[in-house]
Design a protein around this nucleic acid. Structure first.
Lengths: 208, 208
DNA sequence: ACATCGCTATATCGAATCGATATAATGGTC
DNA sequence: GACCATTATATCGATTCGATATAGCGATGT
């Protein structure tokens, strides 16, 4: 799940762990306040599987060339590289590790975004929807309808009607969450309508 | 977190693992769909720490009546016991383990409910609120206000206003979740108002 | 009579995530 | 130049999840 989010962000630009967390917190806001205890293991995981590569931060602006930049950079950049080399073996000098997505990573991202196992929780769905521009129109529609179906079923399973068996506090919680699910469904309905309209337009006006 | 939920349910009646899960799913509904992979370890944990004891289910409900619960009436309490016996069958099925809360468990529950560490996520809060009848009025009010403060701060941190930097899908997600938080705050406000009114009444009309 | 399906029920495993904590470089301020 | 907040990576133990294995038992069907 986190893997998908990270790959999605890296699709746009190279980032290091701290930045990834900030983007998830700021952009996706209240939704995804992910801890470093998740992010760094995830990055290690993704690197080991070949979905991303880590570069040392000194060549961050250069998209193409790998390490061993010629001494044309800034003085501080040069010093950083030298310091990095000074520590034996590991790049464990406390400095930025900037991650770049690979072709394998892009493919993995597409897979995780499309099916990505079950994961019918709210977090997963919102994350997928936030990256929905990477999906084909009909896959987008399917995502929305799948989510709608899940929520409808949950609503149905919840015993509806007044519930005098619950005390006021529990009842308030249940009603509030039920209302939230209803709100979600209305939201999904409007999104689904938009998607359908876009699909109809595309069908009516094919390529040109 | 789960520990608190389990202890809270066991405050009312003895239950076995499967039933605990069902109650969390049905009562707390969409909020708490807990897996067995969490419940059984949690029960083992609680038993090892002495917060609960496991019985074979044949000698349930000795001293177990509505001890600290508000006066729901002895009739409904009786019915609850009967229902608990009838539904799963009085005789223990294969190794059914019925758990009963102990005095230590009740104390642990009170602690978890009151402070319970940080845990400022939505799940923890809703769970606490659902058991809020076990809290003192001012602790209840503090719980609500603490939650409100957290949500307000989060709202403030989220860069507000139109965000043309985000693509339509991500923007929709952000706006929807932001709207949800606003809705939560309004809900909290009404609850806080009720609590304050109740407190004022209690002060105006002390015990007798 | 018995096969078999579905619900009840407990249990365990590996993996993902969290929250806390340690460490260190950098940048700003007095 | 002492001090402190921010940036940044990393690891630890504990919790939770999802999948899976196992059985008993009640219908339903043939």
């Amino acid at each position: 799940m986190l893997d998908m989010a990270i790959l999605g962000l890296l699709e746009e630009r190279d980032l290091h762990g701290y930045e990834i967390r900030r983007q998830l917190r700021d952009h996706l806001g209240l939704l995804a306040n992910v801890s470093f205890g998740s992010i760094y293991p995830a990055l290690t995981r993704l690197e080991k599987s070949g979905a991303v590569v880590a570069t040392d931060g000194s060549s961050a602006s250069d998209r193409r060339t790998t390490a061993a930049a010629p001494p044309t950079g800034s003085l501080s950049g040069e010093l950083a590289v030298l310091r990095a080399r000074r520590s034996p073996g590991t790049r464990s000098r406390r400095g930025k590790k900037v991650y770049r997505i690979t072709d394998a990573g892009r493919q993995l991202f597409a897979e995780l975004l499309a099916d990505g196992g079950a994961a019918d929780d709210a977090r997963s769905f919102s994350l997928r929807l936030a990256f929905a521009r990477h999906l084909a129109p009909q896959a987008r529609l399917a995502l929305l309808e799948r989510r709608r179906a899940v929520l409808m079923q949950r609503l149905g399973e919840t015993e509806s009607g007044a519930r005098p068996d619950l005390d006021p506090y529990a009842r308030s919680v249940v009603e509030h969450t039920t209302g939230g699910v209803t709100r979600d469904i209305n939201w999904l309905d409007s999104l689904i309508a938009s998607e359908r309209a876009a699909l109809a337009d595309a069908r009516a006006e094919p390529v040109g």
